[in-house]
Amino acid sequence: MTLELGKVSFVTATKTKEYLDYLEKGKLAGTKCKSCGALHFPPRADCDQCMSSDVEWMDMESKGKIVTYTTIHVGPTGFEDVVPYTICMVELEGGGRLLGWLDEAKEEDISVGQDVSVVLKELEGDRVIYAIRL
């Protein structure tokens, strides 16, 4: 069984599908361009800096800081049953940003710039989300 990222998936085919294998091992992985050294997270199969398609996988840090956040009260299709939920944008140590859900804390407890950890949390068996914890 392969894990899928997030609560709902829209993309089924991608050159970066190996990302899901790293998720299964509990790891966040980005890609690094072997030609120019640019780091891509979320991962890309092709480098937009030097246009090379020669990239390698590398582990990302799971600690970072909150860039911004919002609590969604009117959710889109597939998210009706989880509102309200707080989306945090996190800048990882060493680079790369992700969106995830605030976990085990309330919006009132967080602020921009706060140190957080990104934990991979399984949801409904075959899905995994980035849980943002203080």
Partner: peptide, 26 residues
């Protein structure tokens, strides 16, 4: 639910108001 990048962002339930809300918060 599909206004943002659907591969890495919409999977966490982002919305159009949600994006501008993140701008507002910042």
């Amino acid at each position: 639910g599909r206004v943002g990048d659907v591969q890495w962002e919409s999977v966490f339930g982002t919305t159009f108001p949600g994006y501008y809300a993140m701008y507002a918060r910042r």
